[in-house]
């Protein structure tokens, strides 16, 4: 609910979204129950988030992917997956730290570009499991939709409030889709 309230508030306020794009969905592979996709992501941050990151604020990124029937009206997703990474600054060696969702995998990168690239690689590996039989039999009638976004609720509240109300951030992100044919 809280997240929805924030999203609603930030959605209504015009602002600058991080340049989080999904360029392509390559290397699609599907077996009986699993769809593997490697999404080509392009991640760039607005200045306010770069400042925040270098001043100790941890940024969270999320990639949502779902397989659903390819039709005009959106339907109930048949399978869905979510990837999360955190990006933070590591002052002891002036590197950027990319941490997995569970915190087990940590990778350091000397530049922000490297760190974003590593984050994109991490997020871009999607595993959709539990696919229904009809998708496997006729994949041309289905689509893979994915959305990459910044986790606003993970930001410190003053930053959410200030940047959100100033219009420096927005929660709007686009869905990208590919046919599974």
């Amino acid at each position: 609910m809280r997240r929805m309230a924030w999203l609603l508030a930030l959605w209504l306020v015009p602002g600058v979204a991080p340049a989080l794009e999904i360029r392509d969905a390559g290397h699609l592979w599907m077996d009986d129950t699993t769809l593997l996709a490697r999404l080509d992501l392009d991640m760039a941050l607005p200045e306010v988030l770069v400042d925040a990151l270098e001043n100790g604020v941890t940024l969270g990124f999320r990639l949502e992917a779902q397989a659903e029937p390819d039709r005009w009206l959106p339907g109930r997703p048949l399978a869905r997956a979510e990837q999360r990474v955190q990006l933070s600054y590591f002052p002891l060696n002036r590197h950027y730290l990319v941490t997995s969702r569970d915190g087990e995998r940590r990778e350091l990168r000397p530049t922000l570009g490297d760190a974003l690239e590593q984050s994109a690689r991490r997020l871009g590996r999607v595993h959709l499991e539990g696919l229904p039989e009809e998708l496997r039999e006729a994949p041309e009638g289905f689509r893979l939709n994915a959305r990459l976004s910044l986790d606003y609720t993970a930001l410190p509240l003053p930053l959410q409030l200030d940047a959100g109300l100033r219009g420096e951030l927005t929660a709007r992100q686009e869905w990208y889709g590919w046919s599974l044919d």
């Binding site: 001043n55 100790g56 604020v57 509240l157 003053p158 409030l161 200030d162």
Partner: peptide, 18 residues
Amino acid sequence: AFADYREFAYLRGPITQG
């Protein structure tokens, strides 16, 4: 401590505005 302080210092403007 340094990160928290930097974050806090960075957020003082938004905190004040808040």
